[in-house]
Design a binder for these strands. Structure first.
Lengths: 154, 154
DNA sequence: TTTTTATAGTTGTATATACAAGTGTTGTGT
DNA sequence: ACACAACACTTGTATATACAACTATAAAAA
């Protein structure tokens, strides 16, 4: 299904516009799919993302700003995301004794268990779309997206 | 900037995961950029989108469900989006006399004027990213994104 | 030492989104 | 004609996001 078909466009669009719409729409499709995956675990996509970041710390606590800068959506409200995870006992939160402005967030065993359970499903989700194109095309797509968004001129 | 750099990932990711993150992140970048563009006009991206759809009707009124199916985010609440536009006198809304379940939404002159003013800026926004890659790559990117999200197998 | 500035995080508010339930209208089957 | 299902849209509610103002702590400057 082309992007014109998706939005039932009658007028011809140039490729610059089509790429924008294609990226926006593809993100919607991926996101809907992922949310569906997370629903049984009562996690939002961003909540999952925070857990994933915390696991990546390998036992080392993460401050709020460390979490923030590793998230895709740089404007997410980390405080409230962590609040939600705290309520579900998936993380712990403590004031850092070295610098009392900072907060140390750690993933709990329960959090790790959920991630472990989710791992194969997330993997499957990623490959569900990836298998539509060849490995070479997949690599090319990454290359093009990175090049596309990286503004060299002005 | 590669997606690994963006999220400061230390572990190696496979291309399937990278593509997902690249699409999500690129959409964020585009969206932030676009929101910034719309801000002086007090329009959200989705509100702009509705106006654009209405202009595309060329004077023919659009029902709620017609608007809905032409939007990128299929879950948007069209009623409330139109409400917002109505408050700003950018659209009109009337019950359809043929089928009183239906609503006829039309863009006003004021709405058309704003779109006209926005046209060059939106165009510029689209080309801001597009010019990072060649026309051939742009076309390839469209092709790959459409192929990527269209699930043929299962 | 006191003031100022910067940092780290939280909270308030307004808006947006997701999802389900509700309302009124039209079409269909009996 | 009547009951019932389908349709088109709206509303309620809970959650998420965006952005700015605020609090507390630490570092730097005067």
């Amino acid at each position: 299904m082309t992007i014109e078909e998706v939005i039932k466009s009658t007028v011809k669009m140039d490729n610059a516009k089509k790429v924008i719409l294609n990226i926006m729409y593809t993100q919607n499709v991926i996101n809907d799919n992922f949310s569906e995956l997370m629903k049984p675990y009562d996690l939002s996509g961003e909540q999952y993302n925070v857990l994933r970041i915390l696991r990546g710390q390998k036992g080392k606590p993460a401050n709020m700003c460390v979490i923030q800068e590793r998230m895709l959506a740089k404007t997410s409200n980390t405080t409230r995301l962590v609040d939600k995870l705290l309520l579900k006992d998936l993380v712990t939160r403590n004031v850092c004794s070295d610098n009392r402005r900072k907060i140390e967030v750690l993933i709990t065993q329960k959090g790790l268990d959920i991630l472990k359970e989710l791992d194969p499903k997330v993997d499957q989700h990623e490959h569900f779309f990836a298998k539509n194109i060849s490995p070479e095309e997949l690599e090319l797509l990454n290359y093009l997206l990175e090049k596309y968004r990286t503004n060299t001129n002005n």
